[in-house]
Every structure is written in structure tokens, then in C-alpha cells.
Amino acid sequence: MNKNILAIAIAAATFGTQAVAVEVYNNDGTTFAIGGHVTAALAGGEERDTTVEAVSPRINMTATQDMGNGFTIDARGEWSLNFLENGGNSFSTRLGYIGLTHEEMGRAVIGTQWAPFYDVASLTDMPIAFANDFLYDGMYGGDFALTGQTRADQMISYRNGFDFAEAGSLNFGLAWQGKNDNTSEELIGTDANGDLVYKEVGAEFDDRIQLAVSYSIMGAQLGYAYSTGDVTESNNTRSLDFHAVSAAYGSYGNGLYLAALYQMTEDKNVTDIDAYELIAAYALANSLNLSINYETVESQEKNKAKETDREEMALQAEYNFTSNVVGFGGYQFDLEGDDDRFMIGARVYL
């Protein structure tokens, strides 16, 4: 694991995805930083009222410590913010982990974290307003964290990378999640004796493992990720597998950026899902970033024809007024119906 890859790993732990952090302490190998962002937008559409919405605001704190002999340990906590409504929970956990990084031995992380699967799947998840919805839709109660496609609960991961100079670089990641129960009881009525009758909803996830590998050369990147494990719903246990293949060229926010993602979900004996995301973006010298993205999700139940569940295209723009203030706007066309949507707002990095 070369020093450049090590630097990227530490930066990701300290500053996070698409974020800026303020380092408030740095002394004798110990650092402490606070970051995150507050994002609000005016959003609406043909099938929904116009409202003011929060767009994934969060606050995070990260500490690092040089352990000597090439080892650096870091701890991070990140919480989503409820800043537009009175009452309710002000914070909920997004990330919480401890990581250990070494120049040669790689990086290990334990806790709630961005999964290796997302290392591959994130290449199209870039615009603020409209991006990879299918990665966050989740299944069986909508809890994507239990399947580990993006942020993953209770995960242990390991990453490493190899730099071949002009021949490019190879990175890989491995991860494991323990058993998670996402079931609850739902009241459905009463029986003949007048007693309340409940049914179990949600699902129970057995151990899950995942693998991610990517290769980068001359500004281009190609990656593959795989996640597998059993899921039990209504006493029916079956395998739930995810495959993701992605490719990208360039750097988002810096000139031309092109990326594509294909994700295949194999849910044995139930429903297979194919999802695609494409994005093309170009950032001008004045920091105005223009993009167009396309997303579609197709599903196929056993012994039935394939159906298109969602098909959308969005035109978007982002502009950096300063290094930590971004204005954004977008219009998303519903290609399967008439639920076109718009969003315009601002993001202020802490």
C-alpha cells in the first residue's frame, strides 16, 4: 500500500465524502477535526407540493493518532441533523467507526461505515439534488444499511491498494456484517375470539460478506463489487446477492466527468432487479458544474415478464460561490409518468 493510497484513506476518514472539515487540534501526532454540512432546498413537482427540505445535512467529528511504526488510528462519528423542524430527534447516527491504517498493511475499519461495495457503486452518486436513488431505496423495510450497499451497520472491513506507477493502480476491499434483525409486529385485526392478531413484517439478515476491486489508469477507473448473504422474510429464507460494475473517466467537479453503474440484485425465487445509472458532467473554469444523469430500475418476478419500475433523467447545475458554499439546482424528468420534480438550494460546509 503506497503512501499516496494511504493519504487518500486518511483523508477519507478525516474529511468524508464531498465534505470539508476544520482541523481544530494538531499536536504531537494527534489531530481533531469537525466537519459536515447544512443543506436546504426548495423542492416540488407535478405530483407533490412545493416545500422546504433538508438535503442530507450532517455533522461529524474525527480524531487521528500516529501510533508509530507506520500505523495511524482514527475514530469518526457522524450524525444527520434535524434543523428544519421543531421537536423530534435532533441527531441520528450516520457513521461511527474506528480505523487502523498502515502504509504497507492496508486499512481495517470496524463500525458503521461506508462499505467497500460503495467504493465501486459511488462513481455515479455525485450530484447534490438527484443521483443514485436505487442505492438508498433499500429492501425489506427500506434499511439499505443492513445490506451494506452504501453505509453499512456493524461492519468489519479491510482495504489495500497497489500502485504500479504508469501501469495504473489496483485497489480492493473485503467486508463482513453480522446477523441483523429488522423485523417487527404489525396489527392486522382480531381473531374469532376477539384477540388481537399480529403478523411479522420486515426481514432478518444473516451474516453478509462482500468484495470490491477496482483498477485505475490514466484518469479512467473500472470496478466490480459483490455482496452476498441470506435473508429471512415470513419464515422464508433465501439468498440475497448484489453485483455492481462501474466505470468512470475524469474527476467530478474538474473538467469532463463520465461514469456508469450497473447493479444486479439476485433474490432467489422472488424478484431479480437490474438498475442502471449514467452521468456526464462538465465543470467550467469558473466552477460552474453542469451535468445530466439517467437512471432506470427494472424488476422481474419469477415466471413473469420484466417490468420497468422507474426511469428518470435529470439536468443539474452546481456552482461554488466560495470553497465551502455551493448553490445547486436540478430538474428531474419522470420518463415513466408525470411526476417531474425540481430542486434548488444551497449547501454550506462546516
Rank of each mutant, 00 (worst) to 15 (best):
I5R: 02
A11L: 11
A13K: 02
F15G: 06
G16D: 11
G16V: 13
H37N: 14
V38K: 01
A43R: 06
E46K: 11
E47M: 14
V52N: 07
S56N: 12
D66V: 12
D66A: 15
F71A: 14
D74P: 02
N82I: 07
N82F: 11
L84Y: 05
E85L: 04
G87F: 07
N89G: 14
L95A: 02
E104Q: 12
R107K: 09
G111S: 09
A115L: 01
Y118D: 10
I128G: 14
D133L: 08
L135C: 01
D137M: 10
M139V: 10
G141H: 01
G141S: 08
T147W: 05
D153K: 08
E166H: 07
Q177L: 12
G178V: 00
D191N: 15
D191R: 08
V201M: 10
G202A: 07
D206A: 13
D207G: 10
Y215H: 00
S216F: 07
I217A: 09
G219R: 05
Q221F: 01
S227H: 03
T228V: 14
T232D: 09
T232M: 07
L240Y: 04
H243F: 07
V245R: 04
A260H: 02
L261Q: 05
Y262G: 01
M264R: 05
V270E: 15
V270I: 15
I273H: 07
L278Q: 00
Q300I: 08
E301P: 09
K302Q: 11
N303T: 06
N303V: 02
E307H: 03
E307F: 09
R310Q: 12
E312I: 04
E312R: 12
L315G: 05
E318T: 02
Y319P: 03
N320A: 15
T322C: 12
V325G: 12
G327P: 02
I344D: 03
A346H: 06
V348E: 14
